[in-house]
Simulated assay, not measured.
Amino acid sequence: MTNHRNRSSYLLRVACAAAASVGAASLADAGCPKARSQNSDVATTITFVNQSGEYRGIYWKDFSGGDKSYGGLNPGESKTINTFLTHPWEITNGPGDCLQVVFPRRGGSTVRLTAPRKRERRPPHGE
């Protein structure tokens, strides 16, 4: 018997496991998914290093999916935060738009915040 809530919880656990296996990994780029902290069982750390050349905001996604600000980073700054394995972190730009959601990994992880990639414009076929 699978319902929507169990499936959502399962998908988030899969995303956590996948992120943990490759370090702190992005769940999505622009248009971030809904995420929330699952438990506080496995302690770890996450370090954010701002290499984007722009301000970045850092938000912990709490147990109800709400945003809790952990401040921000100016270009060149870094910050290490004590957290737990299943706690998602949202990264925003200056205006507060979500750029990505990341999860920490066992033993600690480092997230290098870079400028979003610009999409290459391709001419229509035949030009």
Rank of each mutant, 00 (worst) to 15 (best):
T2D: 15
H4G: 10
H4T: 06
R5F: 13
R5D: 15
R5Q: 15
R7A: 09
S8F: 13
S8K: 12
S8V: 08
Y10C: 01
L11G: 07
L11S: 13
L12E: 05
R13N: 15
V14M: 10
A15H: 06
A17V: 01
A18K: 07
A18Q: 10
A19G: 12
A19F: 12
A19V: 12
A20G: 12
A20T: 09
S21P: 04
V22D: 13
G23S: 07
G23V: 05
S26V: 10
L27W: 07
A28N: 11
A28L: 01
A28H: 10
G31D: 12
G31Y: 09
G31A: 11
P33M: 13
P33H: 11
P33Q: 14
K34C: 07
R36E: 15
S37A: 13
S37E: 14
Q38E: 05
N39I: 00
N39Y: 00
S40A: 10
S40W: 03
D41E: 05
D41C: 03
V42K: 01
A43N: 02
T45N: 04
T45S: 15
T47S: 07
F48G: 04
V49H: 06
V49K: 04
N50V: 10
S52N: 03
S52T: 05
G53P: 01
G53E: 07
Y55S: 00
Y55L: 07
Y55V: 01
R56L: 02
G57T: 09
I58K: 00
W60D: 06
W60G: 00
W60A: 06
F63C: 04
G65H: 03
G66H: 11
G66F: 07
G66M: 12
D67K: 08
D67H: 05
S69P: 06
G71V: 00
G71K: 03
L73Q: 08
P75S: 15
P75L: 03
P75W: 06
G76P: 08
G76A: 15
E77Y: 08
E77K: 00
E77G: 02
S78I: 03
S78N: 11
K79G: 08
K79L: 06
T80W: 04
T80H: 04
N82G: 04
N82K: 02
N82F: 09
T83W: 02
T83Y: 02
T83F: 03
T83Q: 04
F84A: 00
L85C: 01
T86C: 04
T86F: 02
H87L: 11
P88H: 01
P88W: 03
E90L: 07
I91M: 09
N93A: 05
G94W: 09
P95D: 05
G96W: 10
L99V: 11
Q100F: 01
V101H: 10
V102W: 02
F103N: 04
P104T: 12
P104A: 12
P104I: 11
R105S: 11
R106T: 03
R106V: 00
G107I: 12
G108E: 06
G108V: 04
T110I: 14
T110M: 08
T110L: 08
V111P: 02
T114R: 11
A115T: 13
R119P: 08
R119W: 03
R119Q: 08
E120V: 01
E120F: 04
R122K: 14
R122W: 00
R122A: 04
P123E: 15
P124E: 05
G126V: 10
G126F: 07
